[in-house]
C-alpha cells in the first residue's frame, strides 16, 4: 500500500535496518511483558486489581447511582408527576401515571412511578429536569442485579425507600 503525497506523521519516518527487521523490537516487547510477569509473581499484593465483592471502590459523592424519590415532611413523595423527567429521559425509562391529590395545594401526585433500570443510562438528566428536587441519583448504589427483567422495573414504594442493595 502506498500513501505518496499524504503528509507523513512522525510514526511514518524511515525505519533503520534494525527496526525494519522487527526481531529486535519483538524481543524488547517480550522483555517488557516478562518484566511485568515476574514482578507480579513476586509482588502479588501490589497489583491494582480489586477483589470486588470483598473490596469496594470508594466513589465520589457526585457519583450517579440508582435513583430515589425524595419525600415531603409527612413522608409522601415530593414528586408532582409533571413528567419532566420522563420527557427529558433519553432512554425513555421512566413511566409515571399521575393522579389527583386530595390536598388541593398539592393537586397532582404520581399514582405510579416506575423506572426501568435496564433501560436507564444513568445520565442524570432526570435530576436536572426535576422542578421539585423529587428525583435524585445520590444513593451511590451501583450494584443492581436481579434474575429477571421484571425485577429491574422498580416502583414508587421502592424508589421512596431506596437505600438497600439489590432490586425489587
Amino acid at each position: 500500500m502506498s500513501f505518496e503525497g499524504l503528509p507523513q506523521g512522525s510514526g511514518a519516518k524511515e525505519k533503520s535496518f534494525k527496526e525494519s527487521l522487527y526481531l529486535w523490537e519483538v524481543l524488547r516487547g517480550l522483555g517488557v511483558t516478562l518484566r511485568h510477569l515476574v514482578r507480579n509473581i513476586f509482588h502479588t499484593g501490589e497489583m491494582p486489581t480489586m477483589q470486588y465483592p470483598e473490596e469496594k471502590r470508594v466513589y465520589s459523592d457526585r457519583f450517579r447511582g440508582r435513583h430515589r424519590l425524595t419525600k415531603r415532611e409527612d413522608g409522601s413523595p415530593r414528586c408532582v408527576a409533571c413528567q419532566m423527567c420522563s420527557t427529558v429521559c433519553p432512554a425513555d425509562c421512566i413511566t409515571i401515571v399521575a393522579a389527583e391529590h386530595p390536598d388541593v395545594e398539592i393537586e397532582k401526585y404520581p399514582d405510579s412511578f416506575e423506572i426501568d433500570l435496564l433501560r436507564c443510562v444513568y445520565c442524570g438528566l432526570c435530576e436536572e429536569a426535576c422542578p421539585c428536587d423529587a428525583i435524585r441519583m445520590d444513593t451511590g448504589i451501583y450494584e443492581i442485579a436481579a434474575d429477571s427483567r421484571e425485577k429491574f422495573v422498580v416502583d414508587k414504594d421502592f424508589l421512596l425507600n431506596n437505600t438497600t442493595d439489590g432490586t425489587r
Binding site: 511483558t33 511485568h36 510477569l37 507480579n40 497489583m47 486489581t49
Partner: peptide, 10 residues
C-alpha cells in the same frame, strides 16, 4: 494467569 500477570491483573 500469564495474560493476567503480564497485564498487572490477578
Amino acid at each position: 494467569k500469564g495474560a493476567a500477570y503480564i497485564q498487572d491483573r490477578t
